[in-house]
Simulated assay, not measured.
Amino acid sequence: MGQVTIDDVAKAAGVSTFTVSRALRGKDHVAAKTREKVLRAAKELNYTVSRSAAALASGRTNRIALLARERIAGWFMGELFDGLYDVLSQAQYDLTVYRAGSVEERSEFFTRLPANRNADALIVSGFSATDEEADTLAGMGMPIVSVNSPYISCCQASVAIDDEAAEAMAVRYLAALGHRRFCYVGRVDPLTGTAWGFDARARGYKDEIASLGLTDCGIHCIDLWDPQSARQTVATILAQPRLQRPTAICVWSDYYALRVIHELHAAGIRIPEEMSVFGFDGSDVADAIGLSTMVPTSPREIGRIAARKTLDLVAGHTPDEPHTTVPVAIQPAATSAPVRE
């Protein structure tokens, strides 16, 4: 038997092709018994709706595009994908992923605009559009939803963590435990330049240190692609005179904190007796090693929120809360304690 067509389904169900189309796409004004008859015939004939045909009929592709800055294999992106899929799959939408992991990839996306006419909406994760890019996105004529971007002028909806406020909260908590000397360990960002934004967590750290009159013992960066980077960073911190060393280290993420803790243990530093370490993300790593960390709403839930906002916009509705800042909580654990000097 050749490829099954909508005509075959209509003939088997004893209805018109128009009725088959409406029934299979879940449209109104189809009697329940008729819909059941059509679905049964489609199943028996192993017929599936052509996405391209559905797009021509409805003007929609039933596809959402995601432009992501972070590594696709990273923990955050994996959780975010799951959350997006949870919602989009239920609405029978596909997710197409584009990566902007380098200046070249980002330029390629905004030059070719592969999502244009191939998606009903675009979700941008991890960075802000420049003025020129914002104009380009506006010209695509589709809803734009931002995830974790401080600038949302070109977006109709957004969901984000307030990284500055969250990192400031971590500093205040450690200061309440008596810590007065701090340092911050961030990441070496391969995507430099003002167009990619800034490390909001580092800025929150610096501002709160200054506000509380604490001592900043330095901001350091780790390159996870360099096997010696974490060791060299921790050695630099420990090379300071003992009474000028930090007693508390705030780290950009839980995975980076794991590297820092490993190197501190290797150097014979007792945690938290001699030095407290605080991560960020509330990831599976934090639970596994008892890491004190800042816990925002899970990336999976952030993905669900972003997906629901996207579907609202595609349907022509304004989300009840267009721009959402997710809550953050302190999760003390084994790697932080009152200062002992």
Rank of each mutant, 00 (worst) to 15 (best):
A68D: 01
N118D: 12
V124Q: 06
A100C: 15
A53D: 09
L122R: 03
Y98R: 04
V87M: 03
S125P: 00
M77A: 02
A68H: 02
A115V: 06
V124P: 02
E70L: 04
L56H: 06
E104M: 08
Q92W: 00
L66G: 01
R60C: 03
Q92G: 01
A91L: 03
I64D: 10
M77E: 12
Q92L: 06
Q90A: 12
I72V: 11
R63C: 09
P114K: 04
L67Q: 04
R112Q: 14
R63M: 15
V124Y: 02
T96H: 08
R71I: 09
A53S: 14
G78M: 03
R71G: 11
N116G: 06
T96F: 00
V124F: 04
F109M: 00
L67D: 05
L66A: 09
A54W: 02
V103W: 07
A68E: 01
E79W: 02
R106C: 02
F76I: 08
R71H: 13
M77F: 14
W75K: 05
R71T: 11
D120L: 00
F81L: 13
G59V: 06
M77V: 05
L95E: 13
G101E: 15
L80F: 15
L113E: 12
I123Q: 06
M77H: 07
Y93D: 15
R106Y: 06
Y98G: 01
F109Q: 01
R60S: 13
A119F: 01
G59N: 04
Y93P: 12
W75L: 01
T61Y: 10
S52V: 13
L95D: 13
R99D: 13
T96E: 14
Y85W: 00
I123E: 06
A100W: 04
E105H: 10
N116W: 08
R112C: 10
V87E: 14
